[in-house]
Design a protein around this nucleic acid. Structure first.
Lengths: 109, 109
DNA sequence: CGTGTAAGGAATTCTGACACG
DNA sequence: CGTGTAAGGAATTCTGACACG
């Protein structure tokens, strides 16, 4: 029970709104990216774009941080989680990804 | 089969990204708001914030416009649609709205 | 009616760095 | 290590208006 996509994974939210949504400062959000805890996309000009999934991730990170967990450890746990996924689950998620790719930003036009 | 919310109705997308997502110009998106076809929220400073639902609405509007339908007529159809909803459906949607309000932008803090 | 554009201003975001610790 | 901040610049968004039609 990991997946459920559609809008959840579209990278369309700017960092200011993510800050409001998560209660984290922009500085913190950028830092967690540097520590490889979160992976926003970039607009043509270079502005970060986040998904709702990213927002949820950040909320989880914020909770861990409050407990005193260091970013390094949080990253370890994330990698561990990823490894836990079975092949079929991954395949399933990728399929959904394809389907929802229809909703990605139009590169052309 | 109208509803399905959660992320779909959170107003978190800025107009520039909506423009990319819909293929409409920013000018057009603002104009459709003036014609009451779309209802974005505003950030504290005044910037428009749209939901995925809004984006879908805009795509529908764009299609109608391509067929030569005027904004006035599009609006008529929208109001007609709204009236069609049965009370139970509306109640259902509002409930979901409550549940997902949890995900609205934090006004405080 | 629907959309383009130049105008002027305010807020957003970006990066690299100094700071504290 | 994690986060604040001032710095300078570039891109975003906003509104009201002139334009064409």
């Amino acid at each position: 029970m990991t997946g459920q996509l559609s809008y959840k994974n579209s990278k369309v939210i700017t960092i200011g709104i993510v800050s409001e949504l998560t209660g984290l400062t922009i500085r913190q959000i950028r830092y967690y990216e540097k520590r490889k805890l979160i992976f926003p996309e970039r607009s043509e000009q270079g502005n970060r774009k986040y998904s709702f999934n990213d927002v949820e991730q950040l909320i989880n990170i914020a909770n861990k941080r409050e407990e005193g967990v260091q970013t390094f450890e949080i990253r370890q746990d994330m990698l561990k989680e990823k490894r836990k996924k079975s092949g079929s689950q991954l395949r399933d998620e990728m399929l959904r990804g394809q389907i929802n790719a229809q909703f990605g930003v139009n590169k052309d036009r």
